[in-house]
Amino acid sequence: MPIIETQGLSYTYSPGTPYKKDAIKGISIKIEKGDFVGIIGHTGSGKSTLVQHLNGLLRPTSGKVLLNGRDIWENPKKIREVRFKVGLVFQYPEHQLFEETAYKDIAFGPSNMGLDGDEIDKRVRTAARFVGLKDELLEKSPFELSGGEKRRVAIAGVMAMQPEVLILDEPTAGLDPKGRDMILGQIAEYQKENGATVILVSHSMEDIARTTKKVLVMNKGSVAMFDETQIVFSRAEELQSIGLSVPAVTRIFMQLRGMGYNVGDNAYTVKQAVERLLPLLKREVGNND
């Protein structure tokens, strides 16, 4: 049984007004337990609208969201529990820090779950370790932290609820390469260690290519593709046709193939490209020796 399933999910903003907009239309997807899924698409393609349905922040105009096989809106009074099970980290989550210390901010979610003090403390410290925050930072005010540290506090706050599904909306936006690599590494580790289901929304094809196992491509409110990362990136021409920019190495492979070289499938990371090209090029270098 998939951990999350949507059936014909549609959402319309401002229905019955001149500003009516169908943000997502008839989305039916299944996400299995332990999956690491990337969601890509243009601004306005419906990515954020979709993920806000998965933890019940938005209620579908039509269609259903099932969590462990049960409609999350079956009993609207219990929607809060869904939010403990499906944790959502918003874009620029550091803008939402509000407590006096980083510790208290991370503890906010678990406290709301009604856990006892010891358990809360344990979870706060575990989550802080996951995102690489040192103990001494926990007693500081969020205002004293750097942008990257604040971001990690905010992510830890959701991880501390130990949700079955962790959704992150553009967790690396605005970070430098070092901060980006650190956060992506920590998310991948969290996913592996807890067997958690993770959904990563990103504009960065490179980030998606490096971390996720499956990719959901959104276009104009519908699902354009949903498949294993490798298969999605092998359809680079289609991705480009819906205006998504593919990684530079993928473009290099497309062009080489276009020139008639048999370089194999599209590569989407530098590592893959090296592996594919090396045997072809080695032959040539060897011949010259």
Partner: peptide
């Protein structure tokens, strides 16, 4: 210093390390 290089640069750099001219 924690910076990237453009992917095409990185690809050529890695291949060069393997002796590709």
């Amino acid at each position: 210093v924690g910076l990237d290089v453009p992917q095409p640069t990185e690809l050529c750099y890695e291949l060069r390390k393997h002796g590709i001219p």
